[in-house]
Amino acid sequence: MSESARAANQAARKRPGLRERVRATVQAEVVEVAHRLFTEQGFDRTTVDQIAAEVGLSRASLFRYFGTKEDIVLGRLEETGHQIAAELAARPDDEQPWDALRRAFDALTRINEAAPPEQVLSYLRMLQETPSLRARHHEKQLGWQKLLVPEVARRLGADPDRPEDTRPSALAAAALACLDAASTAWVACEGTVPLAVLLDRAMGALAK
């Protein structure tokens, strides 16, 4: 296991303090209420004031937990990015970078498989149909790319002091593009084909 994988495992074992656990509980309640309202009314027609009122928070208090309305939908993506990066770092050192990236995305497919399919489909439809969410989602995925690039570079034996070596960034960006293509196809086929299968097809096309 690489040094980065060991560091990720140590971080995962560290138990959060009481304040962090309370914050996480409130955030989870806000997300649950907001997603219900978004599903019932649509993202654009749901106001922050409505969400805050249902949870029992003031508008100002809600914004202490989430910077924007979009972050209520996408706030968990930062944690997901760290999970994918940890999964990548834990892959065998002799595994090809592209194969390791594919297996790292298992962290995401497992999350989706653990939730009711219609709930995940509704979430992804909302992302695809709401311009402000699409833009914010793209920003979050750029953050994922930054997390993945160092480990891809290590596997390639790339020199981090040579920014002209575009291979690590290209591989990470291409893998995330395949993930987006698979997610779009999964929504289009109403989840009849597993996301993991669609992701295999997308990434397999670039491996040939």
Rank of each mutant, 00 (worst) to 15 (best):
Q83Y: 04
L147I: 09
E113Q: 12
W186A: 05
G191P: 00
P97L: 03
K14Y: 05
A86T: 11
A202F: 05
V193R: 12
E78I: 04
L18K: 08
K146D: 14
V73G: 00
A104L: 04
A196T: 10
T192E: 15
D99T: 11
A11Q: 15
G75N: 09
W98R: 13
R13P: 00
P116M: 01
Q50S: 12
L37E: 02
R154P: 05
L179D: 03
A5M: 12
T80E: 13
A174P: 00
L179W: 12
A8M: 07
T68M: 08
V187P: 10
E20I: 06
E40H: 04
V33E: 03
A5F: 14
V30S: 02
P163F: 11
S61R: 14
G81Y: 12
L195R: 01
L199C: 05
L108S: 11
G42D: 05
R91G: 06
A8I: 06
D161F: 15
M203D: 05
D49A: 15
A107F: 15
S169H: 07
R76Q: 13
C178A: 15
A11T: 14
Y123T: 01
L88S: 02
I51V: 15
I84Y: 10
E139W: 00
L147V: 09
Q27W: 03
G56H: 07
L206H: 13
S169C: 00
M203T: 08
M126S: 04
E87M: 12
P131W: 09
R162N: 13
Y123N: 00
F66R: 06
A34W: 02
Q128C: 00
H35A: 05
Q96P: 04
P117T: 13
A53K: 10
I51F: 06
R102C: 11
G42V: 04
A182D: 08
A174G: 10
L124H: 08
G75L: 09
A90C: 02
A11F: 12
P117G: 04
A28S: 14
A173W: 06
L108Q: 13
G56A: 07
G143Y: 02
L108G: 07
A182E: 07
R125G: 02
A188T: 08
L62V: 08
Q50I: 06
P163V: 07
A174I: 04
T80Y: 13
V55P: 11
Y65I: 08
R19D: 14
R103D: 11
A196I: 05
Q119D: 07
L147R: 15
V73W: 01
V30A: 02
L148C: 01
T68Y: 03
E151W: 00
V30H: 04
C178Y: 09
A89P: 07
A100Y: 11
L124E: 03
L156C: 07
S132F: 00
L77S: 11
V33Q: 05
E29W: 03
V187E: 05
F63M: 11
A11P: 10
I72E: 14
L88A: 07
K140Y: 12
A5W: 13
T25Y: 13
P131M: 10
E78K: 12
R201I: 11
A207E: 13
V193S: 06
Q83F: 03
L133D: 02
S61L: 09
Q119W: 01
A175R: 01
H138S: 11
A28L: 10
C178K: 09
